[in-house]
Lab assay of single mutants.
Amino acid sequence: MVIEDPKTNKLIEVEKLPDGTYKVTIYDKKTGEKKTITMSKKDLEKLLKAL
């Protein structure tokens, strides 16, 4: 799943891993910076609600 946040000009890509956690990659379209973090479903839901 890919989500675009027009306010921050970032793309957020979410991928479910076999162990039940989620790999979240955040791309900054302005700088080209890429950050990848792994989080639980509960933390991911908090992140998505904040957008």
Rank of each mutant, 00 (worst) to 15 (best):
I12G: 05
I12P: 02
I3W: 05
L44Q: 01
P6Y: 02
D43Y: 03
K35G: 07
I37R: 10
S40P: 13
K41Q: 12
E15N: 08
D28C: 02
K7E: 15
T36A: 11
K42T: 13
Y22F: 09
D28F: 01
L47R: 00
E45D: 07
E33V: 14
L44M: 12
I37W: 08
T8Y: 10
P18S: 12
K49Q: 12
I26N: 05
G20N: 14
V24S: 01
K46R: 06
N9Q: 06
K7Q: 12
L47C: 04
K7N: 12
K46H: 12
P18A: 12
E45H: 06
L51H: 13
E4S: 02
K42C: 13
M39W: 02
V2Q: 07
E4K: 00
L51E: 11
K29N: 12
I37N: 13
E45W: 03
K29F: 09
T31I: 06
E33K: 03
T21D: 11
K16H: 12
T25M: 12
T25K: 07
K29Q: 07
V2H: 09
K35A: 12
I12F: 11
K42E: 15
D5M: 02
D43I: 02
K23H: 11
V2I: 09
K49H: 12
S40Q: 13
T31A: 05
E4F: 06
M1Q: 06
E13S: 08
D28N: 05
I37F: 06
V14A: 11
A50E: 15
D19W: 07
L47N: 00
M1D: 09
K7C: 07
K41V: 08
A50C: 15
K42N: 10
N9H: 05
V14W: 14
V14K: 01
K10C: 11
M39A: 05
M1S: 06
G20M: 07
K23N: 05
I3A: 03
K7S: 14
P18D: 09
L17Y: 07
T31H: 11
E13M: 09
G20V: 01
V2W: 01
S40C: 13
A50K: 06
T21C: 15
T21Q: 09
L51Q: 13
K46S: 14
I37E: 13
K34F: 12
K7D: 14
T8K: 06
P18Y: 10
T21H: 08
D19P: 02
M1N: 02
L51G: 04
D28M: 01
L17W: 08
D5H: 01
K49L: 14
D19V: 06
D43V: 02
K23Y: 06
K46Q: 13
T31N: 08
K35I: 13
K16Y: 08
I3T: 14
T31K: 05
M1H: 09
K35Q: 14
K16W: 06
M39R: 01
L48Q: 02
D28S: 05
K49W: 03
T31G: 07
L17G: 11
D43T: 01
N9C: 15
K23E: 13
N9I: 10
I3E: 10
L11Q: 14
M39S: 10
D28A: 01
D43M: 04
K16F: 12
K30F: 15
K34T: 12
T38S: 14
V24T: 03
T36P: 02
T25F: 04
E4G: 00
K49F: 05
K35P: 01
T31E: 14
N9T: 09
L48N: 02
K16I: 13
K41D: 15
D43P: 01
D5K: 00
I37Q: 12
K23F: 09
G32A: 03
